[in-house]
Design a protein around this nucleic acid. Structure first.
Lengths: 340, 340
DNA sequence: TCGCATCGCTAATCCGATTTAGCAAAGGGA
DNA sequence: TCCCTTTGCTAAATCGGATTAGCGATGCGA
């Protein structure tokens, strides 16, 4: 039904010139190599009429570049989180006329190797290695141009990393309470009081705690949770309420906050009249909860964009090896914090 | 640092044979074309030692096939929904040794054209056209082998479609209540009572209503909502409670159910003791809510898998044109329905 | 011993572009 | 008029494989 693609040879014939000339015109090197304006127009017109588009595979073989990058994640593509990360990467890629391969490794090293090979075999120009949760990862050998997204290389690899600025986010969360006049009665749900009290391997836990500590806000107490799920937030807050009467809660993420809301409600306490709540992530539920949850957002979209930008910068010129790019986490002021 | 890739020529030289012979052995046509067992082993061993992997771009140019398919969605890749759809497609693709390009059109026809071109220029073997919500879409001309995912072609196009079986889902939801002994006092939140009372263009609304009607379950009343957001569920349920005392609610999706939960709670009604709630989608919040929400799941993962399977079947032999594949929507029995 | 089939492998071509090297014609200076 | 540039374009090589056509050596029957 649809007939054969128009090739450079077809175009050359239609314009009455050689393939070389047609190619020179189409790649914009006509001026440089002294193709007359007349011939140039002839080729351009023919290309337009025939709807000529260069075969990217052929170009790839000849030039070694495919205008394609690979997005390899552990399992991020499936979670809501990843959605925006991929979206950011996708848009930044589109602006540069580049396509995106995606793949998930499920944390399986064999799958990862297979995926990377499949991408390298297709001559991707670069690779984005993404992680679901901010964490350290081991970078495979001979990966070529690459950046780490939401991850840091375990043995230093010289590859650039893009991560959310969690320490500053911790400060931001604390500052929200400070600005609202909270000086005491502030409790942590999910981690703390010591930096190591929280989910293992969680960069977010440690850095958020660090930021909160930096802020100078006095923390009255804390309940650690191993997995940051809603039930844990519920249990931790319930346990907390059994002993104390908090004026404000910093939940280490929104799922914990969801549980905390339930516990507060069960205890007949009002948010934010009795207890202010601040959280992290800006998960979709944050704006569905009532009152809407004030939270410090994970900038997934921006992280994805930035990954592509840094990857291109790296492919272009020499850049400082191993640079860590921290993306700001914006505060979403909503309804769960009240001045006192 | 990392040296040049191993090419077929390198392999041939290392094994002391011609490129032709090396190629024949590596593509498994050695037997067929009478390459001796001895030489075959020599080539295989050399390939192993050198770590030879054929350059997929070159193979693509020569054979015209790229072992790559394109996944084009309106904006599905960003939503939680899409996550699983992509994941299903990804796994089915990996099982077949195929890579996935992804792209989002944002509903912009120009972007869509550009994306499709970019993919065709890279010689994708087929394309999956996916939609965020089940709906009808206009299929571009000359798209080549393709399938519609979560969508139906507006002017019939002959392309196969993969959609969730919403009518059966409607029956399932009603059956859950019937099985629990509910015969009256059942209200709808989000759409109905007439088939056209619901969000415009929503295939889900119409078909779910149809299924509910098919079930024989008597519906006492309904409140339509235009956008199926939590606030609308809250408002609709509140309005309903002002006039009636429902025994059970069928919410047309989980976000509406979230709002309904809040309204019921505000009214001092208990789920499921006073009111049973059934819903659709199996959004992540469904299992976070308390009590956990019984809902009929959108089988995103299976939809994604099926799309790849159907695409391959279509690329293979002749298949019945325009076939519609309906994927079952499983009931997730949880805690929000109580027998009476 | 000749002719023909079979065996085992390879030379050459092709896919669709980019790129290098160079050729024929026109122009300019001596 | 001759030689040398410059102009404007093209032939041919290349990328890395798959594939077609065919070549030399051996075996076998007559």
């Amino acid at each position: 039904m649809s007939r054969r693609r128009v090739t450079l040879a077809d175009l050359a014939q239609a314009a009455g010139v050689s393939r070389t000339t047609a190619s020179l015109v189409m790649t914009g090197r006509g001026r440089e190599l002294r193709i007359s304006h007349d011939v140039e127009q002839r080729v351009l017109r023919a290309a337009d009429e025939l709807g000529y588009r260069p075969n990217a595979v052929s170009v790839g073989l000849r030039t070694g570049t495919s205008r394609t990058i690979g997005f390899v994640s552990d399992t991020v593509a499936t979670s809501r989180l990843a959605g925006d990360m991929i979206k950011g990467a996708l848009e930044a890629a589109r602006e540069r006329g580049v396509m995106l391969f995606i793949g998930e490794t499920e944390g399986d090293p064999d799958l990862e190797r297979g995926l990377l090979h499949a991408m390298q075999d297709r001559q991707v120009d670069g690779i984005i290695l993404a992680a679901m949760f901010t964490r350290t990862i081991k970078v495979p050998k001979d990966i070529g141009p690459a950046v780490l997204l939401n991850a840091l290389p375990k043995p230093a690899s010289g590859l650039p990393s893009i991560v959310p600025d969690e320490v500053e986010a911790g400060r931001s969360a604390a500052r929200v309470l400070l600005d609202a006049g909270h000086r005491d009665g502030v409790y942590l749900i999910g981690a703390g009081p010591r930096l190591r009290d929280g989910p293992v391997d969680s960069v977010a836990a440690v850095e958020r705690l660090q930021g909160i500590r930096d802020s100078g806000l006095k923390i009255a107490g804390a309940r650690a949770c191993p997995d940051w799920q809603p039930e844990e937030g519920l249990a931790a807050t319930r346990a907390l309420l059994a002993e104390h009467r908090p004026k404000a809660l910093i939940c280490l993420n929104d799922r914990l906050a969801l549980g905390a809301y339930q516990a507060l409600q069960d205890a007949g306490l009002s948010v934010p009249d009795d207890v202010s709540v601040v959280s992290f992530d800006d998960h979709p539920i944050a704006s569905w909860l009532r009152p809407k949850l004030t939270t410090v957002a994970l900038p997934y979209y921006e992280l994805g964009r930035k990954a592509v930008e840094v990857l291109f910068a790296q492919m272009g010129e020499e850049s400082e090896p191993g640079q860590v790019h921290r993306v700001a986490m914006p505060v979403r002021l909503r309804e769960s914090v009240k001045p006192r």
